[in-house]
Amino acid sequence: MRRYVFKRLLQMLPTFLGITVITFAIAHLAPGDPLQLDPESSRALSVQVAPPAEPLPTQYLRWLERVLTFDFGRSLADQRPVTQKLTEALPKTLLLALLALVVAYGLAIPLGVYQAARPRSLVSRALSTLLFVAYSVPVFWVAVMVLLFLTGGRGPALFPFEGLHSPQSASYGPLGYLADTAWHLVLPVACLSYATLAVVSRQVRASMTHALAQDYVQAARARGIGRRSILFRHALRNSLLPVVTMLSFSLPSLIGGSIVVERAFGIPGMGSLAFEAIGQRDYPVVMAVSTLTAVVTLLAVLGADLLYAVVDPRIRVEGPSR
């Protein structure tokens, strides 16, 4: 197992370096600089960026050296350390993405199992159509629609319009604060999770259907084992493998999708940070966000791969090759 982890980490190194090169290249080929937008920041600029006389590869190596010690420099827009901005934004995005992941998988598995167990029931068919449609509906449009119809624009103000907390939430006490945050999170998490929910439940249904048709299920049934036990102890265990694989696909799309959701619901996470930074030509922040997002995604993919290895012992021994 340790060897496998080491091998995967080693494989990620070139990927990480490649992403930093592209990020660096984009940020340095981009025209314009903050000076054009804000003469004030010229001081910060002269401290930040290596003198232009230096060739780009040298600049890149310097930047990479600092990145490896988590020093992303200072923001050109407000001179605050970029690391500080990131530590404010990253937890919000991670909270959003992880909650969405939990919601999506937590609902998808029971829904998929139900559909596989009762394929002909009306509920199953309705669910399958509904999930198929849900998969096709764009996230940001759903966001716009719930904002329009559920936050008081047209119709009842069931949920808050934007942000993660109410303005006066500091005075609520710890429980009230938590409840307030949860109330603010309902719509964003729902928007972020439903597409993943649809994909994963389809996968659960398909692999459960396959598992239920196998001989060992027939054998278990012949031995008189209860329906519930067959479903959850025999069939589900064997059909979770492809579902675990889907984790590594879900995470990047959730992190990407959170940009749109953050933007729509006014949540100051990584997506909003990146968006503002690019508008202000704040390159240290832009490069930091891009690098960090890539690292988080890589780690998430690694985590999913490791989970896969835990679930399926064959992977550990041979490595994921065919």
Binding site: I259, S290, T293, A294, V301
Partner: peptide, 12 residues
């Protein structure tokens, strides 16, 4: 696969 797509386009 891991490159932040939206970022790429915003920058582009």
């Amino acid at each position: 696969f891991t490159f932040p797509t939206f970022f790429f386009f915003i920058a582009l």
